[in-house]
Structure formats: structure tokens, C-alpha cells
Design a protein around this nucleic acid. Sequence first.
DNA 1: GTCTCCCTGTTC
DNA 2: GAACAGGGAGAC
Length: 282
Amino acid sequence: MAIIGVIYRMPELPEVETIRRSLLPLVQGAEIETVQVFLAKAVRPAPAEFAAGLTGRRITGIERRGKYLLFQLDNGQCLTIHLRMAGRLVWQSRTTPLAKHTTLVINFRDGKSLHFVDPRKFGTAVLFPPAAPPAGLTALGLEPLTTEKEKLLAVLEKAAARRSGPVKGLLLDQRVLAGLGNIYADEVLFAAGISPLRPAREVTRAEWEKLYGCMVAILNKALVHRGTSQRDYVDGRGEAGEFQHYLQVYGRKKETCFACGAPLVYVRVAGRGTHYCPTCQK
DNA sequence: GTCTCCCTGTTC
DNA sequence: GAACAGGGAGAC
């Protein structure tokens, strides 16, 4: 039995979208028969109510907002799953033994199961009615890829104007822009030639425009390559992420810049490990 | 608006 | 065997 599902180190927009696309044809129309919760704090509401709310429902579709997956149910409710750092969703036969760190299993009537495996235990699954979405979801900012350019530029400039901190912190702020994480923030800033340390309010209009173009290009290219996979992945359909081969700065600590040959710098910015080229990025 | 913490596999 | 990795909730 092939196992479907790619393991990503830290799923950001391209990875979550790739997972969405791979899962959609598998779960669409499937009816949930039983639900097993192995880590109570990973689900909301509490396990008994969570399981009862899902049992008997059919999944009608999957959407994505930022890094959240949204499973639509046939009664109008919605199940949102956030993989955080190390979570993965694996579609497999119901007889497959549970992997270590499995926090949630959704069993379908057709004999298949969706396993949520999350070693760091940071991931969450929240069942909610349309009228009461979780706070993190409602607070999300614009989608980097589906928003009109001028609108997005206006939002970035406005957010930057009242932010004294480094520009990288703004790119990581999901309330402004929903979907960028540490990997793509570093890559976008490198491509745009902007230092992650630059105060957000000092970024010029021309630079925002360049950053926007780089962001769209990088995210689209990452989507084409099915995201960034680190380490081994498990996949029954060749759905491996390959964007790791295209990273320019992320994860290249102590290496040199592909563009100019200067040693890359690794510092902590906005609480995250940050890679950049001090020569190419100003 | 910025900092801390949650977690455990991996790296040094 | 200690330090590190980090998304987002919650605390300041």
C-alpha cells in the first residue's frame, strides 16, 4: 500500500498548498466513520465533542488560507488543520500501524484514513461552525498570490509605516501577509536585494514593488516544484518537494553567496534564524 | 509591538 | 549532553 503524503520540515504556503492539492482528490466526498484523538491538546473542541462533530460527516472540499488547511464538511462546518513546524498529513490504509507521534486519525468509510503525525506536538486541528472561526484564522492578512498587486503593495506600505522593527518581521507577520514563513521570507529578501535587518519603514516604494515581484515569482516556482522538502519524504505518487535545490540563502549557513561569492551571514532577526548576503542585500 | 514558550529530533 | 530549530498563542 502506497503512502501518500510528503514530509516537509516547516510547511509554508507552497507546501501547504501542495498538500491541499494532493489530498483533495483523495478525501473529496469521503465520509468520516470514526475519529481517534491521541493528543487532547491538539484538537478543539475537546476530544469527545471534536470526534462527535466529525463522525458521519462528508468532506466536500479543501481550501487553504495562509498556512491553514480548511476541510469543508457537508453540514457547513469546517475543520482547520495547521501543521506548524513538523506536522504531516498522511493518507493511508486503515490497517497501517500508527506512526510514532500520531496525534489524530480520521477514519473514512471507504477503508482509508488520514493520519496527522506531529513529533513536535505544535500542530492543531480545530472544528468550527462558519459563524465562529478561530481567532488565528480571522486575523490573517492578504494572500500573497491571489491579491491584486496594488492592494497588496498598499497594505505592505501601510504596515511598514508604523513598524520600527526589521522588514523581515513584517513579512513573517501573518496578520499582514498570510503564508510566508522563515524559508521564503529569507529567499524573497535575497531576491529583492533587501537586507532582512532593514527597518520596515525605510523600505522604498520601488523596493516594495521589486519585493512583490520576487515574492510572486518565488512562491510560484516553489509551487511548481511542490514545495521545499528537507530530509526524506514518503510519497506514493512522486509528489516530492524539490524546491530545496533552488534555495539561494536559506539553510546555507557558513556558505558563500551564489551571486557574489561573499560569505553569507546568519543572524537572529524577529526571533528567527536568518540567512542573507551582506553584499547583495542592502 | 516584541518576547517567551511550547516540543522533540537533529546537530554540534 | 547541550544547543538549536521555529509558527503562533499568549503575556507583557
